[in-house]
Nucleic acid binder design. Structure first.
Lengths: 350, 350
DNA sequence: CTGTTAGCGCCTTCAG
DNA sequence: CTGAAGGCGCTAACAG
């Protein structure tokens, strides 16, 4: 079956010129007579000619397209980072294709291969919570496709990345809880595989230590970020002989799910248990009581990652991160104090 | 510069066989001696051979990839539809690339051309609020690339689509407000360009009519879905001589923004103003008071759209919707009653 | 079972 | 300023 697409050959035939000339006219090459160029452009328009990017990318081995891989779409975090990425990349003339992994390692590997097999010029990544093997990422590097990580960064890979000050932010959040007089501060941590899980927990531990509060292992649980588990773990905390008087949660969905459990049990927030989340998801301000949380500059994270990728792409000589230190950008966060930790202040009116 | 990719030619040379044989071995063609096949597969693995999809798609004019175009990433609606789409398409062996338009018509046109120029096999679309010209969609159809719309469907295009019963859902929602004794029901509608705006408004109007409540044009405003505008319009409503005693909002973000205005003014929800939203966003259950809203089966919408696209793709003869009626699937919604309309029932405890 | 050949659409030398 | 020719990687006839 003959293709329905118009090609430069179709145009060349109609105009009785060579396809090279058509190609030159279409790409804006200077060496084309004005008259010819005009004729080509007009005919191309009426024939609805559209360049076949596959053919182009195929012959040039570059596609003017970058990929972004995110682990999930459940919170507002990743979608808003993506918006920032698109901002910068589209302004730079790049196309952006998005892959979403549903937190599945398998999807991540296959999407990575997909992007590579389509010859994207670069990839911005945040890996899944299941990812423990990073071969698919080093494969991209070996292929000369630059990678920029954000949020979830493999810790044994030397690769450009943009993160926030997870450690300090967690430290500050926990210090805030201590500041309102809490002593038994529980921590619902994320999976060990994520670097920000470990950083935030370290911030938690060090804040306790600084203020002379002994570390109680019973009050720290790592979990897999599935909402159902929060209920189990939170109930467990509340059923302890001496239950916690505060909770520092790895992220806002966790904090919000935990709050449901606390409220269902008839306990008051923040009087009985103060709660702090992480990321300032859209829902943090809506939940009752308003959730104290660490705001991340999501759009900026995306923009910064995009800019880092652009510098990689523009580098005449590919940066070889097996011999040189990869750049890291750390963006600031901001602790947003809301009712979930406001003990003496006035509580949100309704 | 020589490409870093391994190609079938590299493999063929090393094994002293022809590239056709390599190709056959790699694609699982039956006519290859077991011994040869094994040698090829092994060498391919050690050389990290990976098929170049550009070359493949280029020569076959089909890419085993579909696109999904969504207008925005602000609410949870579109991301969860996407998850449903990926579910079905990945199971069917297709790749899914996502394009997000930021509600910009221009982005929509350029993303459409992008997808077409990459020869995607089909596209699932919900158009932007700015879209009034649909040429880029008919272009796809002329190219033989099947389209399936959801949520926002162009009303003068005969094209497969999956929607919900917007009219009945709105009717029922408004009837619910009337049922709790409301007579002055305001409606914050969406942009005229969206078909569901018009359907939901018609449902609103007909519910009023059925119950003998005269239509008051002062209580209906269309707007562009930007949160800032909600504040203006809602203030306007509240400043009317006889302000409304209920609000039916085009979607949940609108309803939630409106609730902020109402609460800021010191009015009570639902006593002074009852509020109903649409879509049952994640935030609807979190906001205080809980928002009564119309739940949409988002993942199902995605799955259904994907299945419709698959039937289009599998059709031996392309369906020509200029001569035959395009299929429509209408999925059911469910009115979720929460505190924002519970006058007599018990109110959520905190 | 395997090799040869052609061709997908485009850009890019190289010759005029 | 323009045309002819080659090649990107792969599959699909067509011959053996």
């Amino acid at each position: 079956m003959k293709s329905k697409y118009t090609t430069i050959i179709d145009i060349a035939r109609q105009l009785n010129i060579s396809k090279s000339t058509v190609s030159r006219a279409l790409t804006g090459h200077p060496n084309v007579k004005e008259h010819t160029r005009k004729a080509v452009l007009e005919l191309a328009a009426t024939m609805e000619y559209q360049r076949n990017s596959l053919a182009l990318g195929f012959s040039k081995h570059t596609t003017n397209t970058i990929g972004i891989m995110v682990p999930e779409f459940m919170s507002t975090y990743f979608p808003s980072v993506i918006v920032g990425v698109q901002d910068v990349m589209q302004a730079a003339g790049y196309n952006v294709v998005i892959c979403q992994q549903n937190e599945s390692y398998e999807s991540e590997v296959s999407n990575m291969k997909l992007l590579l097999s389509y010859c994207v010029d670069g990839i911005i990544v945040s890996h899944t919570k299941e990812t423990r093997n990073f071969d698919h990422f080093t494969l991209a590097q070996r292929r000369g496709v630059p990678l920029v990580f954000f949020n979830r960064v493999p810790d044994d890979m030397n690769v450009p990345n943009v993160v926030v000050n997870d450690y300090e932010a967690a430290f500050q959040a926990v210090e805030h809880l201590i500041g309102i007089g809490r002593k038994r501060i529980a921590h619902l941590a994320g999976p060990e595989s994520l670097v920000n899980t470990r950083l935030r927990r370290q911030g938690y531990l060090d804040a306790l230590k600084k203020h002379g509060i002994p570390y109680n292992p019973d009050l720290v649980l790592s979990y897999d970020l599935t909402t159902e588990k929060v209920k189990i773990y939170m109930k467990h905390f509340l059923d302890l002989e001496t239950p916690p008087d505060a909770l520092f949660a790895i992220n806002d969905p966790t904090a919000i799910a935990a709050m449901e459990v606390v409220k269902a049990k008839g306990l008051r927030i923040p009087e009985d248990i103060a709660v702090v989340g992480f990321s300032n998801d859209f829902s943090a301000q809506l939940v009752y009581p308003g959730l104290t949380t660490v705001a991340q500059p999501t759009a900026d994270i995306g923009r910064t990652a995009a800019e880092m990728l652009l510098t990689e792409l523009k580098a005449k000589v590919k940066n070889d991160y097996s011999i040189k230190k990869a750049p890291t950008v750390q963006l600031p966060t901001k602790l947003i104090i809301r009712e979930s930790t406001m003990v003496k202040g006035k509580v949100k009116k309704h």
